[in-house]
């Protein structure tokens, strides 16, 4: 099932590269956190980044929407292109970039506002809605896509912080979806969730693939196998192996990948 699915996607979108990273280096002060990473990430595909803690997968993810700019000691080198445009070029506004490349974080981080205002945050900032009615529409659509609409439709004015952990994370996904990004970055989105909420979010990720390129960092190899079509294995700042998820998990080429997925390292 998974194999068929992946093959089909590769068949359709093989040429459609969303992100092209070449020789990316990331430094935290003197610490060389990402070394020579080159990877092509496909559109309308879920790509999983796996690897042991501290291997740099989150750091690399954050350099895709220049979130590393907010860390003063962090330095990114190399060439990262989104649809052929160098995202680190001086003419690219990181704020505009982040609107195109949305992000969902490890810990649910709803703003201390109502559920409605949480989702409407991005559209308001970017002026995506021309009136109250249109904004309502965006909010409802986003909440529906995040599979949380039925649970919150009667209390859109309630505080987003009052929801349960799983609901908060889906609210954060709805918030990210509301700005109509082209790519969605998810940094261990299920690590703070229970199995039921995790299943809901995973189902959601599969649906989001219809419209976006989704990149998910995860510690759970089962999760990577369940949701992704492509998998990249990071180890000690290097991209060790990148390929179809089924290949990585059934037939890894690198011994380090094999050791990791069989539980011998990491």
């Amino acid at each position: 099932m998974m194999k068929d699915n992946a093959d089909e996607r590769i068949g359709v979108d093989a040429m459609d590269i969303k992100f092209a990273a070449k020789d990316v280096q990331v430094y935290y002060a003197d610490n060389h956190a990402i070394k020579d990473v080159s990877v092509d990430i496909l559109d309308k595909t879920v790509t999983a980044f796996i690897g042991p803690s501290g291997c740099g997968k989150s750091t690399f993810l954050r350099s895709l929407n220049r979130m590393n700019d907010t860390i003063p000691i962090c330095r990114v080198e190399g060439d990262i292109r989104l649809d052929g445009q160098d995202i680190n070029a001086p003419e690219v506004d990181p704020v505009q970039l982040r609107a195109k490349v949305g992000m969902v974080f490890q810990k649910p981080n709803p703003f201390p506002k109502s559920i409605y205002d949480n989702v409407a945050y991005g559209p308001r900032i970017h002026g995506l809605a021309r009136g109250k009615a249109e904004l309502d529409e965006i909010v409802e659509k986003s909440l529906r896509r995040a599979a949380i609409w039925d649970e919150v439709k009667d209390r859109l004015d309630a505080a987003g912080t009052g929801l349960s952990g799983g609901q908060q994370q889906r609210l954060c996904i709805a918030r990210a979806v509301a700005t109509e990004p082209e790519v969605l970055l998810m940094d261990e989105p299920c690590s703070a969730l229970d199995p039921i909420a995790t299943a809901q979010v995973e189902e959601l990720i599969d649906e989001l693939r219809q419209s976006y390129s989704v990149i998910i960092v995860t510690h759970s190899m089962q999760q990577a196998a369940r949701v992704s079509q492509k998998t990249a294995f990071f180890h000690l700042g290097n991209l060790v192996e990148y390929g179809d998820t089924t290949d990585i998990f059934t037939n890894p080429r690198d011994t380090r990948t094999e050791s990791y997925i069989t539980g011998r390292i990491g």
């Binding site: 979130m67 982040r98 949305g102 981080n109 703003f111 970017h126 918030r175």
Partner: peptide, 26 residues
């Protein structure tokens, strides 16, 4: 929490938008 700022930046908000709409209300 820094997570709130990250969340706002991640949606493409500028620093002053983040402060005005997320940090100060919190």
């Amino acid at each position: 929490p820094q997570a709130l700022r990250d969340g706002s930046y991640g949606l493409g908000a500028t620093q002053s938008e983040t402060i005005k709409q997320v940090v100060l209300p919190a």
